[in-house]
Simulated scan of single mutants.
Amino acid sequence: MSTTIAPAGSPSETSLWKGHTSQWVHFWYYFFCLLLAAGCGVAAVATGGLAAIGLVVPLLMWIIRWWVTKCTAYELTTQRLKISSGILNRKLEELELFRVKDYAMDQPLFLRMMGLGNLTLITSDMSTPTVEINAIPGVEGVREMLRTAVQAERDRKRVRELDVGGDGGDALVA
């Protein structure tokens, strides 16, 4: 059994926020599944119940979409953003907060009516240059937590973003 010991002087990492994408983001998809199920129900009456077997298709479509969305989780800590996804095979993507260059909050009308919003991060990370966290509740608070955590992590690591040249290319400099 191995034990990992944090280096002396390194702060402990604490969780600031955990969340999932809301199922409201799939409203039209679920609505289509309901229409498809209704069509199968009408066809079942016309075919003497034979078309009722078709109800399995919209039901499976609904369940799979719900499950995939539910199995994608986000966790914002004081040092990283962790994104875990996958139903059978799990994938964990970690983004160091000092690599976040910019963030934008977006609240389309439908999501705003539900108290939800989208958060888009532009990063200097090679594997994930853009991260989208869609349809999360309390997006304003999450954005503020992210902003504070990014600044604190940059200060802790002594990293600053530097605009070089007029082409808009950015670099992180220690």
Rank of each mutant, 00 (worst) to 15 (best):
M1H: 13
S2A: 13
I5Q: 15
P7T: 06
A8S: 12
A8D: 11
S15Q: 11
G19A: 09
H20M: 05
T21R: 10
S22C: 07
S22L: 04
W24Y: 12
V25E: 11
H26N: 09
H26A: 04
H26E: 01
W28G: 05
W28T: 03
F31N: 07
C33L: 08
C33A: 12
L34I: 12
L34R: 07
L34N: 06
L35H: 09
A38F: 13
G39H: 15
C40R: 04
G41M: 11
A43R: 13
A44Q: 09
A44I: 10
G49W: 08
L50D: 03
I53P: 02
G54P: 01
L55M: 07
V56N: 03
V56G: 01
V56T: 03
V56P: 01
V56C: 07
V57M: 12
P58D: 13
L59T: 11
L59G: 13
I63K: 14
I63S: 14
W67R: 14
W67P: 06
V68D: 15
V68G: 08
V68F: 14
K70S: 13
C71D: 15
C71H: 15
A73D: 06
Y74E: 07
Y74L: 08
E75C: 12
T77C: 02
T78H: 11
Q79K: 10
Q79H: 11
Q79L: 05
L81M: 03
K82H: 10
K82R: 14
S85Q: 14
G86W: 06
G86Y: 06
I87E: 10
L88Q: 11
N89E: 14
K91W: 15
K91Y: 15
E93C: 13
L95V: 04
L95T: 14
L95D: 05
L95S: 07
F98I: 11
F98H: 15
F98R: 15
R99C: 04
K101E: 15
K101I: 11
K101T: 13
Y103E: 12
A104G: 14
A104H: 14
A104N: 13
Q107R: 14
P108M: 10
L109E: 05
L109W: 10
F110P: 03
F110L: 06
L111C: 02
L111M: 09
R112A: 03
M114Y: 07
M114E: 03
M114D: 00
M114G: 00
T120A: 09
T120V: 09
S124P: 02
M126V: 06
T128Y: 10
P129T: 07
T130R: 13
V131W: 02
I133Y: 04
A135V: 09
I136A: 07
P137E: 14
P137A: 15
G138Q: 10
G138H: 14
G141N: 12
G141Y: 08
R143P: 00
L146F: 03
R147T: 02
A149N: 01
A149D: 00
A149H: 05
A149E: 00
A149S: 02
V150C: 01
E153S: 00
E153Q: 07
R154Y: 01
D155V: 00
D155R: 08
R158Q: 05
R158Y: 00
R158V: 00
E161S: 08
E161C: 04
L162T: 05
L162A: 05
L162S: 08
V164F: 05
G165K: 11
G166L: 03
D167H: 05
G168T: 04
D170M: 10
A171I: 09
V173H: 06
A174M: 09
A174H: 05
A174N: 06
